[in-house]
Amino acid sequence: MLDQTVYLCRRVLRNIRQSPVLCSAAIGTVAVALTILTFFALIVVNVQLLASHWSEDIQVVAYLDNAPQPTRLKEWRKLIEDMPEVARVTYVDSEEAMRRFSTRLGPDSDLLEGFDAEILPASLEISFKAEHRSRKAAEAVVARLKQNPDFSEFSYGQDWLERFESFLDMLRIGGGVLGVFLLFAALFIVGNTIKLTLYARRDELEIMSLVGATSLFIKTPFLLEGALHGAMGALIALGGSFALFQIFLQRGLASLLLVSGGGQVVFLAWHQQLLLIATGIILGLIGSILSLRKFVRI
């Protein structure tokens, strides 16, 4: 068993040593395909991060005709807080609303001098749980609150929410389609490159078969070699995408995140890096299997 394993490893290394150009081509193909894929994945992940940061701002503001009695207010708060979508309810009375308005006006706040705080209605600010930060949840809550005639008006940025959700959907679908397309393109290119390496060794495959090698014996080194090409390509892709990340994403997206008050631009987490290497290995293996089916017939 040990002898066979050593022999297999020797054959894999010999194959790589004997066809350095084709091996480099296979590794390079995997590297380029996975670098492009990873770079797009990084864009999607970071834009989604930005989007999720924005979605924290989704809230419903229910305006009240008159300032409620404390007992009434307590009832409403309990009623709203009991709704499954709701995380928090904040009561903003007229004075607080005026104070915020004044703060927002900044140096022009003296424009408000002489105005009574009562001109601004009291309101309830309703924030959502993370999993319910969507237009649908906001509409559901508003529909329930509308049954109460004490709430005169609702504001939850309907148009903005609609556009924001469409953008998120487009990003998810576009990212998914692009990812699948790039993976298939990579598989096709890797498969063909490996086919070339096998074509260069077709004599060896034929002779092996003629002197009594089993299908498994013939295929195993090529499968291992494919997996090794995939792993090496993925490692190069990891380095390449990190370089692209540093050059383009760090500067481009970071400034956008900074403006919007969002977090930092992130690179792949360690488990995503492992997934990338696994993807490379699987690409190499599938490419080898598809090509071997054509070349190894006993």
Partner: peptide, 22 residues
């Protein structure tokens, strides 16, 4: 087809074009 390699292990084959690994 699984058994063919074992038949070939008992059969020597020689070709006009030698079929050697260069």
């Amino acid at each position: 087809s699984r058994h063919i390699p074992y038949l070939r292990r008992r059969t020597g084959i020689v070709f006009q074009d030698f079929k050697l690994l260069e």
